[in-house]
Amino acid sequence: MADKKSLGSAESEYHFEHDYSAGLAHVSADKIADPGLEPHRVRMTDKSVKHEKTAARQVAIWFFVSIIGSISAIVAYFAFPITDDLGTVRNNTFFVGVSIALGMLAIGFGAVHWAKTLMPDAEVAEARHQTRGAEDVRARAVEIVNLANQESGFSRRKLIRRSLYGALALFPLPGLVLFKDMTTNADPTETLRHTMWKKGTRLTTDPTGTPIKAADLTIGSVFHVIPEGLNDREDMLEQKAKAAVLLVRLDPEEIKSQKELDWGYDGIVAYSKICTHVGCPVALYEQHTHNLLCPCHQSTFDLANDCAVVFGPATRALPQLQITVDAEGYLVAKGDFAEPVGPSFWERTA
């Protein structure tokens, strides 16, 4: 203990065995002297037996409180079972959780209180050694490496060394190839180009799949649309992630794009709901501005102008679905989208 203290009060000087360059550091020869560690401040528990006993009692009380907490947690587990009533979940979570918390916090308070009041609180100093090995150790290390090199001929035998490098570079490759079957999709760029929509596919409501008549739409009304038959498909979610459509009836006077008018039916237009940025559903429609807003990154599309981007990180307009009505008056697609829907990919325009 005594020798440790003296370390703290010794005059400050960088006296490691190896001398490093100080670089741009300005090492002052006239530094103010290090007075050494501050004198220890005596605590009440150091000088008064009464305080010491009180502190000891407090620590023990904390540990007893912890025992009570842990036991009550077990009791609460059985006393507050979970039934069909959802309120029981809340009670179970609350009482079990708070009791366990008490059991833990009290141990923490007790232990820290013990350390702070009863264990010695005088700071002590200990020597630090340079991370760098001592010169003889370093010399021996170099010697070992050289010996190993000499005995194996690693540097000398070039053929062995280079062929080993080649072997080591190649051996992980089979492992990588094995991951190939993580996808069974031979050409993902091809599947991204097509959706479920075909000539004559009826537009139906999302999620029930009820066909929509043109007459059902009044000006300004919005339908979330899926292709007919989607719900029966095995790959329902994958298809929906591409085929989801937003259907809106606008006043034909307000539509600025002739293509939009032509591809729609009597002011009823259908656009892909999948954002051309990173693919969130563009689900928010603001009626008086005719703006469609993506809630993820706020890309905004002008529905009255062929869904061109007016704001946000997206670049491309939402693709439009050509629609018409069938003999019974139901809205049907005239075919698939003319371009891939959703986020861009490298080969999109290829």
Binding site: L7, S12, P35, A127
Partner: peptide, 18 residues
């Protein structure tokens, strides 16, 4: 940094018990 704390020593409390 502080009095008695230097690059060649470490000042604090011992692992056991504190």
């Amino acid at each position: 940094s502080g009095p008695g704390r230097r690059d060649d020593n470490v000042v604090g409390y011992p692992l056991m018990p504190v």
